[in-house]
């Protein structure tokens, strides 16, 4: 009945069997909290984000933090070696994680990371794309949809302009990036289902 945590936001996939469920959860929480704070600090630097109402800032971050982390930590997924490096630095093969109970989400995240990495985006392009991921007017609980929509459109225009300037002969890159948004939604939904299973367990 050994329990494993297959999320790379943990320091390790192995759980000390002597720890209580509460202790395991607290340890996990301490592991991902710094990353979440970094997402918030990133959001605060998006021009216009702080002008949104505070409830809408919270709603966007609540809904989008997982997707931002998927983009930011795509490099943890080594597609060539089929391994994942956890935040604590430990590396696991896909087969090992599968044996520990990882399901379809793992494969889907590998696919996503591979496609995103293959686009070869610069740090600036990746940052702007991440801002577009976060500022989505169709997240649940948004009060002032028009304001979020206006900021979203500004960010998308800036992303298109940057991609067009940097990749004049690769016009499909911008379209491919926008198509990553529904992929991220799908991963987010799968992740929420896994969290439910974890909490129930």
């Amino acid at each position: 009945n050994r329990m494993h945590l297959v999320c790379p936001m943990n320091t390790s996939a192995h759980v000390d069997p002597h720890k209580s469920g509460h202790e395991v959860w607290e340890e996990f929480s301490q592991s991902f909290t710094p990353a979440v704070r970094e997402v918030v600090e990133f959001a605060k630097k998006i021009p216009g984000f702080r002008d949104l109402s505070q409830p809408d800032q919270v709603s966007l971050l609540k809904a989008g933090t997982f997707e931002v982390l998927v983009v930011r930590f795509a490099s943890l997924f080594d597609v060539r070696d089929r391994t994942i490096t956890f935040l604590g630095g430990k590396k696991y093969s896909v087969d090992t994680l599968r044996a520990m109970g990882a399901g379809d989400l793992l494969n889907s995240m590998f696919d996503f990371s591979e496609k995103l990495t293959n686009l070869g985006l610069s740090e600036e392009e990746m940052s702007l794309f991440t801002a577009v991921v976060l500022v989505s007017a169709d997240r649940s609980g948004i009060e002032n949809v028009n304001s979020v929509e206006a900021l979203q459109e500004t960010l998308i225009r800036a992303l298109r302009s940057l991609i067009t300037k940097n990749h004049p002969n690769e016009s499909a890159i911008f379209t491919k990036l926008l198509l990553k948004l529904p992929d991220l939604r799908s991963l987010n939904n799968m992740h929420s289902e896994q969290l439910l299973a974890f909490k129930v367990h």
């Binding site: 929480s29 909290t33 704070r37 918030v40 971050l61 609540k62 933090t65 649940s140 969290l195 439910l196």
Partner: peptide, 27 residues
């Protein structure tokens, strides 16, 4: 389970970070 962020304690972390309060999350 319509609000996984709240279940994870994310909302608490997000609110504190947004308000510039980077103290450790209190139980």
């Amino acid at each position: 389970f319509s609000d996984p962020a709240s279940n994870l304690g994310l909302e608490d972390i997000i609110r504190k970070a947004l308000m510039g309060n980077l103290e450790e999350r209190q139980e």
